[in-house]
Amino acid sequence: MAALLGMLLAAAAPDGAEVEALQRLWSGVRDSSEQVVMSVERGASGWPQTSEQRVRTIVAPVSVAWLGAHVLYLEEFLEDDPEDPRRQLLLALEPAGTPAHAVRVRLFTFARPRHWMHLNYRPRLAARLGWRDLVASPDCDLTLTRVGEQFQGGTLGRHCVDGSPGEARYLDYRLVISQELYWYHRRTLRESDGELQEEVIGFNRFEPNEARLYACRVAWSASGAARDLRPLVTLDVYEEGGHSRFVTPDGRALELTLHGRDWPFALDRAALILLLQEQGHDTPFATAWAQMGAQQIALELGWLEVRCGSMVPDSDELAQ
């Protein structure tokens, strides 16, 4: 019996570590630029100038012991108006079980949201929180999986119902969190046929907001031959010095960095530069170049391939 208990605890330990890692990464203050890509009510938006708004998201641990050991309070408001939050949530983090390295995020809204405003600064109020004060949203729970130094994931299936009046619709929500990245993608789809009704994207706010987000798909070959390349991981990085780490199945710890306007060695000619190096080493062993503003950049090494594509389209692309 003791041996079995030890095995169960050993198996649970990595999942517990993922929960703690997600809590550390998610906690903090994030300023995002939120843009409407399309809306059937407003037509195609003029990306990004006409639809951009600043969103501030505050996430902080709160003590709600009966809800779990890892509980976060999330408060989100537009521009600089903290007294009028548009969203307030309690997030209970727990191991997901499957897939590996995944965390389940249980979502709760408040029956009386304004009563619980700024809960992260009001521990005495948090101590009085009870089940009757919360509204569970199990169909909108998130599953976030650790990939390198990021957590990626979102809602599952078509069960997260959008409560807006009119035709029945559901939400598909994607989220990426790392130390330097906070990116979300919200789609509202018609329940009857899955037709897209609205698409919104939010990403780190820059001043000026010029840096673009790229999704870098990494493929690895066990044999070392390009014909045997298989998908390994997808990492999201910004063009202004964004970086992310990953480990290949044979144990090689690598770091990917993407430079653009921040690159200090080519002031007279803007370029997009992709670097690959061993973790802990200063010198990259592989590089790739592309024109500034390029939608794609790639590294092809035979045993490893990295292809990065822009996740934030230019305004003229949307107009096509």
Rank of each mutant, 00 (worst) to 15 (best):
Met7His: 10
Leu25Asn: 05
Trp26Leu: 14
Arg30His: 14
Val37Glu: 08
Val40Asn: 14
Ala44Arg: 15
Arg56Ala: 01
Pro61Leu: 03
Val62Trp: 03
Ser63Asp: 11
Ala65Cys: 00
Trp66Pro: 04
His70Glu: 00
Val71Glu: 06
Leu72Trp: 00
Leu72Cys: 03
Phe77Asp: 04
Phe77Arg: 02
Arg86Asn: 07
Arg87Glu: 11
Arg87Lys: 06
Leu93Trp: 09
Pro95His: 06
Ala96Trp: 07
Pro99Lys: 02
Ala100Tyr: 03
Val103Tyr: 10
Arg106Tyr: 02
Phe110His: 07
Phe110Pro: 06
Arg114Phe: 07
Arg114Ala: 14
Pro123Gln: 08
Leu125Trp: 00
Ala126Met: 02
Ala127Gln: 07
Ala127Arg: 05
Asp133Tyr: 01
Val135Met: 09
Gly153Glu: 00
His159Leu: 13
Gly163Leu: 07
Leu171Gly: 02
Ser178Tyr: 06
Ser178Trp: 08
Leu189His: 07
Glu195Leu: 14
Arg205Glu: 07
Pro208Asp: 07
Pro208Trp: 08
Arg212Lys: 13
Leu213Arg: 14
Val218Trp: 01
Val233His: 05
Asp236Thr: 12
Val237Thr: 07
Glu240Trp: 15
His243Asp: 14
Val247Ser: 13
Gly251Thr: 03
Arg261Trp: 10
Trp263Thr: 00
Pro264Phe: 09
Phe265Ile: 03
Asp268Thr: 13
Arg269Ile: 09
His281Val: 09
Ala286Asn: 03
Trp289Arg: 12
Ala290Gln: 10
Gln291Val: 15
Met292Ile: 13
Gly293Phe: 09
Ala294Asp: 09
Ile297Cys: 01
Leu301Met: 12
Leu304Cys: 07
Met311Val: 10
Val312His: 08
